[in-house]
Amino acid sequence: MRIEIDEPKCVASGQCVMIAPEVFDQREADGIAVLLQNRPGVELQDAVRESAAVCPAAAIRLVEG
């Protein structure tokens, strides 16, 4: 799995950071999501999928494979 964030769509809600803090963080200046790792291990993939599902702006894209 590879993760992509569409920064212009991000509304800085922080849901992804709360669900998967090992994978996502937020910029101090504006709260926009940033990736700590774009290819998470298998043990984090369920949390990443949940983060993408609850993102209010649909700014997280998952590319399987």
Rank of each mutant, 00 (worst) to 15 (best):
P8Q: 10
I32G: 01
E50M: 12
P56C: 10
D25E: 15
P56A: 11
V54T: 12
G41Y: 00
E64M: 03
E43R: 12
M1W: 04
V11F: 07
Q37N: 13
P56S: 10
A12L: 05
E64P: 01
A58Y: 09
A12M: 07
A59Q: 02
D30A: 03
E4L: 12
I5N: 04
N38T: 13
E7N: 10
R61L: 13
I60H: 00
M18Y: 08
E64Y: 04
A53K: 13
K9W: 05
I5D: 05
Q15E: 09
C55E: 02
P56G: 10
V11G: 02
L35M: 07
D46I: 09
N38V: 08
I32W: 03
L44S: 11
R27G: 01
V23M: 02
Q15S: 08
I5L: 12
C55R: 01
Q15G: 09
I3L: 12
V48K: 08
R27D: 02
D25L: 06
A33Q: 00
Q37E: 14
Q45V: 15
E4T: 11
V54E: 00
P8V: 09
A47L: 12
E28P: 06
E28T: 11
E43G: 07
P40A: 09
A29G: 01
A12I: 05
R61K: 15
P21C: 08
Q15H: 10
I5W: 06
L62C: 01
A53F: 11
A52E: 10
C55V: 07
I60W: 00
M18F: 10
A47C: 02
D30C: 04
V63N: 07
L62P: 01
Q37H: 07
E64Q: 06
E28H: 04
R61E: 14
V42F: 13
L62E: 00
I60P: 02
R49I: 13
G31A: 06
L36Y: 07
M18W: 08
S13T: 11
A53Q: 12
R49K: 13
I19P: 06
A20R: 01
Q26K: 05
V11Q: 14
E50R: 14
A20H: 03
A57S: 13
Q37C: 14
A47V: 04
P8M: 11
K9M: 14
V48Q: 10
E7H: 12
Q45I: 15
R2S: 08
V63G: 01
R2V: 11
D30R: 00
V23N: 02
S13P: 01
S51F: 02
A29Y: 01
V23E: 02
R39V: 11
D6E: 12
R27F: 01
L62I: 15
E50K: 14
L44C: 05
V34T: 15
D30Q: 02
L62K: 05
C10T: 07
A57T: 08
A59V: 06
R27N: 00
D30Y: 04
M1C: 07
E4P: 02
G31H: 06
V63P: 02
K9Q: 14
R27E: 06
